[in-house]
Write a protein that binds this DNA or RNA. Structure first.
Lengths: 111, 111
DNA sequence: ATGCTTTATCGTATATTTGCGATATAAGAT
DNA sequence: ATCTTATATCGCAAATATACGATAAAGCAT
């Protein structure tokens, strides 16, 4: 719609939503999986593993990088990406904080 | 683009992405928080707590329901929503499975 | 039956995302 | 200097998401 109300929520809510948004596409989940499995950093190999064009993969990588979930360094003519575990852990714990604590109390909800 | 490639990824990847997508908006994070905090189910109270129109909140609730994160039952003229902890736990553990295991091995990445 | 309250749905406008091909950029190799 | 390879960016088309007002539906009270 013309107007954006996202700013009207708390920073934590926005951060968590942005984190979720970065993971809200199977291609990006897949990329994260590949990066996690191979300890070493990869780049164009991802393109071969995914059913997407090179430019599209590059775009997904950019989004993951912007969201802070991965880091990317230029290494000669190729780029090297790695999972940013620190950011990942931070968001994961925030996620758990939000819901795991409450879960214990409310296990038996009404509906 | 006209084409959708999401189907070309594994079911688990798609499920996880859909789960993330449902959380990928601060309004929906906020709704989940409200539902979690109050053990009882709520409905129109959410509208008063959020800076959004009733129809918009209803739409967000529908998305959360479609994603299976909440349940909704009709209770007279009003609707009652609750967090679906079971689905929530399932996704959360799948999420942790995907990344927590790998995290231990790869703590010291290359970049 | 009529009106009131609550929630869902429809229609619509705009913004964002997804995807690709084409092109630019940048570094190494010849 | 030129060619090759790898990656990023641009421009575009189509699909989705966000948001609202208006309206419908469904149950309760009078």
């Amino acid at each position: 719609m013309a107007v954006h109300k996202k700013e009207e929520f708390t920073q934590k809510e926005q951060d968590l939503a942005n984190f979720a948004k970065a993971m809200a596409h199977p291609a990006r989940i897949s990329i994260l999986k590949v990066l996690a499995q191979r300890n070493a950093c990869i780049c164009g190999e991802i393109v071969e593993l995914l059913p997407l064009a090179q430019s599209t993969v590059s775009q997904h990588l950019k989004e993951l990088k912007n969201a802070g979930l991965i880091t990317g360094t230029i290494d000669g003519p190729r780029s090297c990406y790695c999972i940013n575990w620190k950011a990942f852990q931070k968001f994961n714990s925030e996620f758990n904080f939000l819901f795991d604590n409450l879960k214990i109390k409310n296990e038996k909800a009404c509906c």
